[in-house]
Nucleic acid binder design. Sequence first.
DNA 1: CTAAAAGCTAGAGCCGCCTCTAGGTCAAGT
DNA 2: ACTTGACCTAGAGGCGGCTCTAGCTTTTAG
Lengths: 176, 176
Amino acid sequence: MVDEPAELSIGQVAERTGLSVHTLRFYEREGILAQPVRRAAGGRRVYTEHDVDWLTVCTILRGAGMPLPDIRRYTELVQAGDGNEPERLDLLRRHEQRVLDQRQQLDRCLDLIKFKIGVYEDIVEVAGTCSRSDVDLRAERDDAIPGQVEVLAGVGGDARGRDEPALAPGRHPRGL
Amino acid sequence: MVDEPAELSIGQVAERTGLSVHTLRFYEREGILAQPVRRAAGGRRVYTEHDVDWLTVCTILRGAGMPLPDIRRYTELVQAGDGNEPERLDLLRRHEQRVLDQRQQLDRCLDLIKFKIGVYEDIVEVAGTCSRSDVDLRAERDDAIPGQVEVLAGVGGDARGRDEPALAPGRHPRGL
DNA sequence: CTAAAAGCTAGAGCCGCCTCTAGGTCAAGT
DNA sequence: ACTTGACCTAGAGGCGGCTCTAGCTTTTAG
């Protein structure tokens, strides 16, 4: 199937995966590699494309915050072969949930940021032309004070129409 | 405006924000609070609702990975008052970008996970009934091996129709 | 043949972000 | 009066995840 299991040095793998050679060795110690890396005469590690692919998967998982112990566990399961699929499934589902939660947090933050950016854009723009009086103090206040904090704090809540920009950033929103 | 700047103890603030009292003191040392917290006789911290709101904002920012130094900086800017809006804007825009990048990573990971979950669901389900022979080895292999790794590795790429589930998880997808 | 580059191991160090400990003060309830 | 519990400070400790150092060997290019 894999017709040319080309041999790769640790340096090459580093290049390909974007991980440092240090990290690669570290990951190996941590049991993150499918099978303990082969060694050439002289003790040098010999990686296969296969390893690179696995590392790529791991990097994606890491990039979404899967902790190394979980990755190790998953690796072990895969290594162990048949029969543990339910546990793998479980592990993946758990991580999926974490990722979804994270996404929600990010979105919450994006709402907040977008709102504030809107406010500041108004201020900055207006300051350039008509000396800010019509933007009025509220804008800065909003930063120190809440106002829409309650609104935003509630954004995580499920109901509430996500798409209508509850706090239109364009013009500064209702008082508070 | 704020008609009842109710006084809150650190414990109450901890409850309200979900941060520990330890963390609250730590954040204060780190300059994360708008103004240094007032003290009552006896040296005890006295927080206002205002502080709680600001902390809420900070928690949202932190939750999306804004580093403490950046939060401190932002806090300083707000504290300093008028005139630095462009810098605040800049800070926020930078963070926005980071958040967007993170989201992409999460989505990449979700694609990977969903795909794998699909594969394992098939295996597990089939194993229950007809002894797996028709799912065949490919499924496990996929774990150790790439196959769609290339596909997934490419998922981050901008073009490519995001919404059609490039790798339908339901039935196991095309070979590889 | 030699020098530079790349690899090796073991282990220390670092950064971010909390979290906890020790040892004390203060305020309220019984 | 005394205990309980929330609070205080300063500083140590811990954890996750790398990252780097020292000192050595091996490979490779000139």
